[in-house]
Amino acid sequence: MVIDVTFNTTKISKTLAISGRFNNRQLAQSIGYPIVDVHFWSDIIKHQQSTDSRSSDYIVLVVISGGITLGLLPFAVLRILQQDWSIAIMNSAVFAATLLLFLHLLITKRVEVARVGLAVITLFAMTATIYLKGAQNVLWVYPALTTSFFLLSPSIAAIITLLFLFLVIGMIWTQVSFLLLLTFSISAGATFLFSFAFSKRMRTQALFLKQLATIDPLTGAGNRRRLEEKLIEIVNRIKRTPENVCSLIIFDIDYFKRVNDSFGHACGDEVLRQFSALMMDHVRESDSFYRLGGEEFVLVLENTQLFEAKKLAKKLAAAIEQTQWHLPELTITTSAGIAQYTEAESNYDWLQRADEALYRAKSNGRNQCFTSLDLSSAS
């Protein structure tokens, strides 16, 4: 659902900029700056936030932890009634652990904690069952192996399950014939290798798809969807730790339409690529760079105050102006709007303030850097 919403809104507003309720909208239109109301995007962002908790991983883990909890309860009760105390204690412990994990997942929605917890509980339960009940329960090793690779990263799952297999073999080797032990070792080893290879391939494909969904293919910068996720992440973190600061800069390539009209869209694409490469070469590893749409880009500067962000924006704008482009007759400049996050505002309000500062920079003759405070002092 999240992917569909993002795709549709991106298609509708591929070259639109966020403006919101801004007193100088006529000025924006007069300088050829397309606008769309910020509250449209706020609805999209709120919808994305509400659907994040319903991701497929979250739902699957809720079903697994809830199913294990319900499935273990009758066995724990049965073992108690049969006075099989060793198994009863083990079943009760596993039931209590999965119940706590299920409740923790529902409350916090932290899927990584649930993944590790479920893997540990599964392997412990299988090991304890074989230890207490003997080699006849060894077939439970196979679902334990595949479950571990489903829940954990391939490398971590490989280490844990190898230790688990050696432990199981050590427990059963005196209870079964050599042929049965050899058969089990080979089949369990094959299951291990297949699970590892499949998990590795699926993780690689998932990473590739995530990059496709969050990286702008032309410039290599993060796309608008990734920017929205980043801003939400920063706002939530600053609300928890208000001592943190963060600023963002919106850059707009001046008169970019003239580049396309005069030299063609291929030339315009090359300008966008070079512009992005230059920006990413001049910022810190902790900073993040995104393409907002068209010729607009956003640089997010964590642990950076407004005056520092403005200083950097001027430095980057000067570097752009002095750059030798792929065509000698090209001269490219950029305008910038800068805003530091302030307490209690939303991520789209923060972006809107930077966008209004960008409007002022463009209306002031372009090749300018304005901050949100510059707007306050001017008014």
Rank of each mutant, 00 (worst) to 15 (best):
I3A: 06
F7I: 13
A17R: 14
I18V: 12
I18S: 14
R21E: 11
R21A: 15
I31W: 05
D37T: 05
D37W: 06
D43E: 09
D57I: 11
V63L: 15
L70F: 10
V77D: 05
L78W: 07
L81I: 09
D84A: 04
N91C: 15
N91Y: 14
S92N: 03
L103M: 08
L105D: 00
L105A: 04
E112A: 13
A114L: 01
A114M: 04
T127C: 10
I130D: 01
L132K: 03
L139K: 07
L145D: 07
L152E: 02
L162G: 13
V168F: 05
I172H: 07
A190N: 06
M202R: 13
R203M: 14
L207Q: 11
F208C: 07
T214I: 07
N223E: 01
R224H: 08
R225F: 15
E233V: 01
E233H: 12
E233K: 09
V245C: 14
L248T: 03
C267A: 15
D281M: 15
D287W: 00
L299N: 03
L301D: 05
N303E: 12
F307D: 14
F307A: 12
A309D: 02
L312A: 13
A318M: 15
A319C: 09
Q324Y: 06
P328T: 08
S335A: 11
Q352I: 03
Q352E: 12
F370Q: 04
S372P: 06
L375P: 10
